[in-house]
Amino acid sequence: MAIRVNLDRVLLDRRLSLTELADRLGITLANLSVLKTNKARAIRFTTLDALCRELQCQPADLLEHVPEA
């Protein structure tokens, strides 16, 4: 996938664990783990909005386009 999710880096900067974020967002840990490990096929705007709100960041901080070789 050409889009990389940098959730782990943002979580590290905020000193937050994945479990804690899952609790705050009301998203299951399994789903958040899928997102963190770049296995997700798509992300809803509502999820992105919730992530940006909780992590005090912009979508560009979470998502990165990586050109495929």
Partner: peptide, 8 residues
Amino acid sequence: DEDQSLTI
């Protein structure tokens, strides 16, 4: 269905 299940 697979796409849907991997949409977060």
